[in-house]
Write a protein that binds this DNA or RNA. Structure first.
Lengths: 193, 193
DNA sequence: AAATAATCTTAATGTAGATTAAGATTTCTG
DNA sequence: CAGAAATCTTAATCTACATTAAGATTATTT
């Protein structure tokens, strides 16, 4: 029954037939993930793509000094995965960790490619949401080279109010690219205005 | 005859039939663009998608202090356009300017959408290269929050040797997110190592 | 060819954010 | 519930990069 959020998600792009819906139920596997559990580790190839039904994840790298840098968060109805590694089958440089107890639906690469071939509608669905992801990513790129940390923090709060409170300030700092100490300072300045 | 580079480009993803090739020739329009000419201005809606046959472009924003920030370059066989504005039909915040005299093939939004409906193969092609663009964009995002300017400059040189010399240092500085002065300093340090 | 504009370089001074250090508070675990 | 761990806050000092200024060099325009 937990495939319904994913089917609803796809239906928002293009309505699925009954047959397509049952294929989705067949090829997407449900998993329960505990808080702090990893679904991807650096060095592994990412053979699955993941849709979040319940819970929250972060995807991050660790630099040569051991510092973590958050690339993405994902909550309900979001996708998360290293698409570079998924398609190239090269070892990923990313980790994906659950920030909360979560439920996900995962599809194996071979099943996803089969889906694209047998049901071309999914090519369109995935194209559209990949384009949306690219627009977001480009906006973030521009912010990182043109905005102050405070502007980035305020934009994050404004853009993601529905999950902003579920993420610790340490993780948010790592996402906007500053230290937790500096984020604390920014927050103090904001509340004194 | 200048549709051939685009047809070759598509063929690298999936071979096109003769019919698909002639459709491409029909819906993509060739334009000659002079150096410094704009093909998109802030405030306009981007109703076209652009494939570069010859030449070089940059896509950039201007911040509230008047400073330019380069989001993307595009040379032969690359796409350039504001996909956010293209799909949402909202006014773009971006400019696209030719850095050299150029030749492009452009498709109108309505033609592109028709292409997706009538020839679903193009959904797959566009999905794949959009995924590639997203992977690049995410890598750049991580660099911007974790690497020094020098590392970013060296990575840019290494990653794009085929067009690195066609772009001025001022534009490269604006792309990696530093001032031209600082880039000059970095380059001096690199040559003294 | 001369004039103009753009680019590149150099260096002193300033600043947003990092690092280091540590205490206070909150959350998690057994 | 007590102890441990994680998070959050605070502040002094440091640093990567920005700003300001200007000269040298190269490219473009007339």
């Amino acid at each position: 029954m937990s495939h319904q959020p994913l089917i609803d998600y796809f239906n928002k792009f293009i309505p699925l037939t009954e047959e397509e819906q049952s294929i989705v139920e067949e090829v997407f596997n449900e998993r329960k993930i505990k808080r702090r559990q990893f679904i991807l580790n650096e060095g592994d190839v990412s053979f699955v793509n993941t849709f979040v039904v319940e819970g929250c994840f972060r995807m991050y790298t660790v630099d040569d000094k051991g510092k973590e840098h958050n690339l993405q968060f994902a909550v309900e109805n979001w996708w998360i995965g290293d698409i570079g590694s998924f398609h190239s089958e090269e070892p990923s440089k990313l980790y994906i960790e659950a920030l909360e107890n979560s439920i996900v639906l995962q599809i194996k690469k071979e099943d996803q490619l089969r889906l694209f071939v047998e049901y071309p509608k999914f090519n369109q669905i995935f194209r559209v949401f990949t384009e949306n992801a690219l627009v977001s990513s480009q906006r973030r790129t521009l912010q990182n080279i043109s905005s102050t940390a405070e502007e980035r923090y305020l934009d994050f709060m404004k853009r993601y109010p529905h999950f902003f409170n579920r993420i610790s300030n340490v993780q948010i700092a790592s996402y906007i690219g500053v230290t937790p100490e500096f984020l604390s300072k920014i927050r103090k300045e904001i509340t004194s205005k």
